[in-house]
Write a protein that binds this DNA or RNA. Sequence first.
DNA 1: AGGGTTCTTGACCATGACGTCAAGTAACGC
DNA 2: GCGTTACTTGACGTCATGGTCAAGAACCCT
Lengths: 191, 191
Amino acid sequence: MTSQAPRLRADARRNVESIRTAALDVFRTHGLNSPLDEVARAAGVSKGTIYHRFGGRQGLIDAVVEELVAERITGIITAVRDIEDPVERFESYLRRIWLLQYDEPAANDVLLRAMPGSDPLVALCEHASAVAGGFLAEAQATGKIRDDLTAEDIYLLVWERGIIARACTEQPRDGYARRCEYTLRGLRSDS
Amino acid sequence: MTSQAPRLRADARRNVESIRTAALDVFRTHGLNSPLDEVARAAGVSKGTIYHRFGGRQGLIDAVVEELVAERITGIITAVRDIEDPVERFESYLRRIWLLQYDEPAANDVLLRAMPGSDPLVALCEHASAVAGGFLAEAQATGKIRDDLTAEDIYLLVWERGIIARACTEQPRDGYARRCEYTLRGLRSDS
DNA sequence: AGGGTTCTTGACCATGACGTCAAGTAACGC
DNA sequence: GCGTTACTTGACGTCATGGTCAAGAACCCT
């Protein structure tokens, strides 16, 4: 699966690498909707080369998404899975996802399903949703989390945070985090 | 203050009215950032006429904002002011504002301070903020609302909801409203 | 009715993005 | 080295927005 293509010419290989690197950088900073010209400029190639090599934004994203965000999201899942208290596990998960959305516009775009055409990306996203649903159910079983919450709600809460985080440029992180805590607090059962 | 200008020609007067009406309609439905061409089409005039008569989007907004949203917002304030319980007053205010943001994109734009250049609009907005700050303080005095909340937080909670509502096209209102309740619940003091 | 003025028009410029392709350039194999 | 082929380039076409203005149309007054 690694060397399917007939082997690229040296300059092409070089460019593919530059473009990948530049895309990681630009996407990480400005999200998956950054102008491709910007990626091209950062890579020192022309826009046409990106289209030629990757077939457009979609292909380029597919080529970097793994390195770009997959490990961030799976990292959160594995880190949180070991927490014993189901409520804390559930809340930790949301808290970390929400902060990731603030910190990494690209991860945010993934979670917002901004690129519905990309398979690996949709898969990643659905995996995260499924896991979140599990955490929710376990937390609800303790009776400490509202039982009218659904897995769909969790997705939408993440979606809402994503929309906010995207617009949040130039707004302090600690205020954002504090308001996340309020929302989290609102998901607990009425005492 | 009413008849300052030397009196417009008949066609001009007619057009001003058409444009105002069209703007009310278009802005109400699609928010204050609707393309002016759309307003022009709806009014049956050319885009140039709008620029000529109102000097651009800013002037057009100023000309309709009163009728468009001012009464909505002041209506909420006066309706809520009579509620006796400070907590309920505070929560009612937020709840109504948040729903207004969902229901009326134009009002939402105002509350988001999307048009920082328009004087009447900024005034309206600051008035709302000031009132909200008062409600907050009174609610906090009962001890039932978190005392780490600031007036700035309230503004930002409204801002966040606005961002969400703007992106919320095609998402059911009751889900939106339910998540608003969660957030509201999170603003109460920890029991 | 017709001349002078006010208004309107829609073609025009600008911006900033996406995406394409003929023509030029650089690497590879012999 | 040199021809062939792979690769890159950047100008170009397109679309959607904001905004302008000379020329023509509509109006009003006498």
